[in-house]
Computed example of a mutant assay.
Amino acid sequence: MSSDPGPLIDVRDLARTFDVRRRVEGKRRRVRDEVHAVHDLTFSVAAGEMVGYIGPNGAGKSTTIKMLTGILVPTGGQVRVGGLDPSRERVQLARRIGVVFGQRSTLWWDLPLRDSFDLLQKMYRIPPARYRENLARFVELLDLGAQLDTPVRQLSLGQRMRGDITAALLHDPEVIYLDEPTIGLDVVSKGRLREFLRALNQERGTTLLLTTHDLQDIEALCDRVIVIDHGTSVYDGSLAGLHAQGGSSRTLVVDLVDEAAPIDVPGAQVRNVEGPRQWLSFPSDASAAPIVAAVASAYDVADLSIQEPDIEDVIRELYSRGA
């Protein structure tokens, strides 16, 4: 009988403080302040999960990722990734993780994109056949064929981001940390990248920890969300649970054949009326079926649609409650 391997990422009471010195009027010496970037942070991620890790600027997201990769050493608590201590076993861990840090590229600025990939193959000692297979697949899916012989410095932000994602995945990491992976991409490219990441997770079981300000990335990719604020977790659960906790509502948009008084059906409330179109709001955790049936049976309906709640508004409400 096999034993439970436990979570791939395990964070317990994690803390990281920084000393910040500032000038105070009337004093010759600077005053030292202790800033708690992360404190009392606990969560775990199982192998194969796709988790959104979100929060406002300065919440502690990047500091957390840097501790998970071994770039920063925690000042309290503990963290394990694949059973390894990131800060003490960075070399071993580097072969098992992939990282894309937003505006900071891992590619060689003056080299053609292809040469950067070839160098990474040597660094990670990727078997040649596996390297060729991975490179061909990623280049096709991320539409990088025309850029392979272009120096990195001449790539657009979106092209470089796709190059960085390819570089982070060539060695088949167990977990990948993505920081703003769709920045600089147009709508079509964003959709293609999201499809690529979903396929990667489904086919290879790659674990994904995604930090982003584009909350459509979270809704498209992640079933679970961890919301961090002031260095600690304020929510950890499903997207549906986040909507419920934030008190969000869904909207039924009804186009009537003719103008009418505000629609009156159980479970929904009219929010706005413009001519024959009416907007009805109802709780996000409620079923739309009985409301749609009630409207259709009592009114002459030309068309209707359902608008899902904006996750950005939900998180804003969550922060305001915490504040």
Rank of each mutant, 00 (worst) to 15 (best):
D4H: 13
G6C: 09
P7E: 10
L8K: 02
I9V: 15
D13Y: 08
L14E: 00
A15Q: 09
T17E: 14
D19G: 09
V20K: 14
R21I: 11
K27I: 09
R28D: 12
R30T: 11
R30H: 11
R30F: 14
V31Q: 14
V31W: 05
E34M: 10
V35A: 05
V35D: 11
H36W: 05
A37I: 08
H39V: 04
D40Y: 07
L41I: 11
T42I: 14
T42P: 13
G48I: 08
Y53I: 09
G60P: 04
T63H: 03
T64G: 08
T64H: 06
T64Q: 06
L68Q: 02
T69R: 04
V73Y: 12
P74E: 05
G77C: 09
G83W: 01
G83A: 10
L84W: 03
D85L: 06
A94W: 00
R96Y: 07
I97K: 04
I97V: 13
V99F: 00
G102K: 02
G102M: 03
Q103F: 08
R104L: 02
S105K: 01
D110R: 12
L111V: 13
P112Y: 08
S116L: 07
S116T: 10
L119V: 13
L120M: 12
Y124E: 06
Y124R: 03
R125W: 00
I126T: 04
I126E: 02
P128T: 08
Y131S: 04
A136N: 07
G145P: 06
Q147N: 14
Q147M: 15
R153E: 13
L155Y: 07
S156R: 07
L157S: 09
G158T: 07
Q159H: 14
R162C: 05
G163T: 04
D164I: 04
I165A: 07
V175M: 03
T182C: 06
V187S: 14
S189A: 15
S189P: 02
Q202I: 08
E203K: 11
R204K: 12
T206L: 02
L208F: 07
L208G: 06
T211I: 05
T212V: 12
L215H: 01
I218S: 00
I218F: 04
I218K: 00
I218Q: 02
A220W: 04
C222E: 01
C222H: 05
D223R: 15
R224V: 00
V225D: 03
V225S: 00
V225K: 02
I228N: 01
D229L: 10
H230L: 11
G231K: 04
T232I: 11
T232M: 05
V234S: 01
D236F: 09
A240C: 10
L242N: 05
H243T: 13
A244R: 15
A244I: 10
Q245P: 00
S248V: 02
S249C: 03
T251L: 01
V253G: 00
V257P: 09
V257T: 12
D258S: 11
E259A: 13
A260D: 15
A261I: 09
I263G: 01
D264C: 08
V265I: 13
L280C: 09
F282N: 00
S284F: 06
S284W: 06
S284Y: 02
S287C: 10
A293V: 10
A294C: 12
A294V: 07
V295F: 03
A296V: 10
S297G: 11
S297L: 12
I306P: 00
D310V: 12
D310W: 03
E312P: 03
R316G: 14
E317C: 11
R321S: 14
